[in-house]
Structure formats: C-alpha cells, structure tokens
Nucleic acid binder design. Structure first.
Lengths: 216, 216
DNA sequence: GCTCTAATTTACCACCTACTCAATAAGAGT
DNA sequence: ACTCTTATTGAGTAGGTGGTAAATTAGAGC
C-alpha cells in the first residue's frame, strides 16, 4: 500500500502533525484513545517515530487537552464578546455553550476529569481551563450588574453554577440522560432565575411548535 | 506462596465473591480497573476462572456500577427519611451527599459517564440510578412545598439542579478544583437560594473559625 | 474407597499499551 | 556525485487486555 518509509519531514512540522493527530483522536475517540499506535496510524508512520517526538504519553494527553480547551475558550470568548451589551454577551455565551458542535469537546472534558485523577499534568490543565471559563463568565456578569441588567447575585458564584450545570449536562449527554432540550433548559432557566433576566436564544422567536426533528 | 490451587467453592458463593471484588476494585481504582486479571488477583484465583463466572466484562462493569449506585441510593434514602419534616429530610440528604466517605462513589459516577459512552448497559444503569436520585429529592421537595417549608420552585427542576451541582463538583474533585468547602457551599447555597431555606448542616454551630484541618 | 461432576488450572490466542536501540535511508549541503 | 546528519524504521522488551480449550483435581455422593 503506502510507501515503505514515510517522507522525511522537518521536525517542527512533524511535531505539529503529531499534535494535530492527538487533537482529532481526542475529539473523535476520547482522550483515552491517544496512544502511540493510534497516533502512528493516523500519521501514516510507525509508533517509535511518535515516541521520538513525544516525551511521554501523559504529557501529550495533558497538552492535547490544553490545546483543545484553550482553543474553544478563545473561540467562545470571541463569540461572546461580539455584542457590546453584557446581556447580549451572556446570551451569546450560552448559545455557544449549547451548540451541539461543542459535544465532542464536552466528551473530552469528561475524560479529563476521569483520567485527570491519575495524570497530574492533565488535572492542572483542567483547573487552568476551568478558571479561564469562570473568569470569562464572571466578567460578563459583573459588567451586566454594573449596568443594572442582572440581579446582584455574587458574580463568581453565578459563573460557577453556570459551568457546573454545563459540565454536568455534558456528562449526562454521554449516557443519553434526558433530551438535549431538557439539559439545555436546565442550564438556561436556572441562570435566568439567578440573574433575573430572559436568556432565550435569539433565533428562537419563530414557530410556536419547537423544532422536534432531534430530541436527543 | 498461597495454595497451588484455590479452595473449590460453591458456584453461587464464588460468583458473589467476584461481584464483591468488582465493587471494591471499582471503588478503590475506578470502573476502568475492573479486569479479569485484577479480579483474579483480588480473589487469589486465576483469570480464566473469573471469565468462567463473568459472561462479559462490559456486563460486569455495568452490574457493578448498578450495585454500587443502588446501595448508596438506598443508604442515603434511609438516612434522609430518618427525620419526618421535609426540611430536615432535605438537610439530611445534603449532609449525606457532602460526606467525604462518599468520594469514592463520586469517582465511580465520573467513570460511568466517561465509560458509559461505549458501554450501553452501563449508560442505561447510570440513567436508572440518576432517575432514582431525582425521584428521592423531588419527593422531599414536593412534601416540603406542601407544608409551606420551601419556595414554590418546580420540584423536579430543583432536584435536577441539586444533582447537577453534586455531580459536577464530584468531577471537579477528581482534578482538585477548588476546596471541598467551596464545592460544598456551591451546592448548598445555590439550593438555599432556590428553595429559600437555610440548609446549614446540623453539626455546624460550633466554633467561629471553621475546621481548617483539611481544605481539599 | 471409588466415581464422577465440575471448579479450577495451565497453556494458549490475538490484540493492546509504552518504550528502547540499533540499523536504514532520506535529503540537505558541499 | 558524495557526505553526513538525523528522520525513520525494524525488531524487540515487558507489560497489559479479553477470552478459549483442554488438562487437572477437589470434594460431594455412593
């Protein structure tokens, strides 16, 4: 089939390829599926070459998680900061977090908690990413409160509740607990109660009967 | 060191021993550590014997999770139903859920979500156990509302928030995110806000300076 | 004490994991 | 075209996983 030996590449380029392979494996098959062989197969290369570029598997798993989490945080941050009003920013944040295209990342987070128990670097990466999320939401909530748009709940506490609900529902989804709609409204409506605002997604002013094409 | 061959046992007795071994392995090393060899070593027996008693690993993992979850649910249910007043019942429920001796079970839950993605029986077991938890809390909240002890929030919604917070903080604990005190008050105080009641644990009326002996 | 069922073992299979070391060969620089 | 660095491979170590077939042997019933 393929060439007997892979094209010789610039080390930096090959290292990047390996990191990318780790990301797509994590997003499609979970953090636990990142292995020398899987990476090698994905890159069309033998496993010792992967080992040559990766100090240790635990480190690669931790770095891969960081890369995935940080990329998502920066994308969602940009999306959430597109509007200028904090209320609209918060709605945009919730929309982004509820987007089904985020499901794969939710699975990776779930793996991170489970695997992080025995991978200190991964646990540290998870803590850092969580702090970033909390900081993002806390900032928006604070700004909204200063403009009188949100009820005066403790901003960081509200942010912690938001992500606890997001994280729990992400876990629930892995075992298909309740419908996507139920999981989503659990998050949205609970934060409506805390901040005393309407957080209905912008595009949801259409037909009376909600879209029932997919209830998972 | 031990006998060359293990004592011949009644099949029912041996099967029970295997199930017990699976439980303690799950609680000490996680659901993913349940393997033919680990079980065999734990029982002082060879792995084919375990295979002889276990139809398939996935099934054993699912059944082990069910056993652990159902035992905890029945214990906590008994504890929570000891008081007669719903408010006291709810406090007892929260106390039980916050008990650090419950940590191991929290880890097993986390594993269940992560592993449940590729083990349908396990996912179904998780859904069932979750429904039992929600039913328990919903019942107490409903009873409390009928006696005017709780604010009229939707009972099942409040129960879902409760366990979403409990489940998320259990995940957070695996990566040491925030202190035990912070995680615990996130749950308790959020439910105080929802039900508009004081949920301080009964034994917490002691010294002004909280116990700082362990902050994890 | 003998027999006979079946609990238990030994010896495997095929696959996975991380990782190491010496041999090969690609391809850039001269 | 030749050299030389080093990316890449082949072969192997030492473990892990679930699972199977057939030999062994414990111990209950007669």
């Amino acid at each position: 089939m393929g060439a007997r030996t892979a094209r010789r590449r610039d080390p930096a380029e090959r290292a990047l390829e390996v990191r990318d392979a780790a990301k797509t494996i994590a997003l499609t098959r979970g953090l636990a599926a990142i292995s020398l062989r899987n990476l090698a197969a994905h890159c069309g290369v033998t496993s010792p070459l992967i080992a040559h570029y990766v100090p240790t598997m635990d480190a690669l798993v931790a770095n891969t998680f960081s890369a995935i989490a940080e990329q998502e945080i920066s994308e969602v941050t940009r999306h959430a900061h597109t509007p200028t009003e904090p209320l609209e920013q918060f709605r945009a944040l919730l929309d982004a977090l509820a987007d089904p295209s985020r499901d794969n990342v939710g699975e990776v987070w779930c793996d991170a908690w489970s695997v992080g128990r025995r991978n200190d670097a991964l646990a540290a990466a998870a803590r850092d990413a969580m702090d970033s999320w909390i900081a993002l939401a806390t900032g928006i909530i604070q700004a909204g409160q200063e403009r009188g748009q949100f009820a005066p709940a403790r901003p960081e506490r509200a942010a912690l509740v938001l992500f606890a609900l997001v994280d729990a529902t992400a876990s629930y989804q892995l075992v298909s607990y309740r419908s996507r709609l139920e999981r989503e409204s659990l998050v949205r409506e609970t934060l409506e109660d805390i901040l005393k605002v309407s957080l209905q997604p912008i595009a949801n002013v259409g037909p009376i009967r909600p879209d029932a094409s997919s209830t998972t």
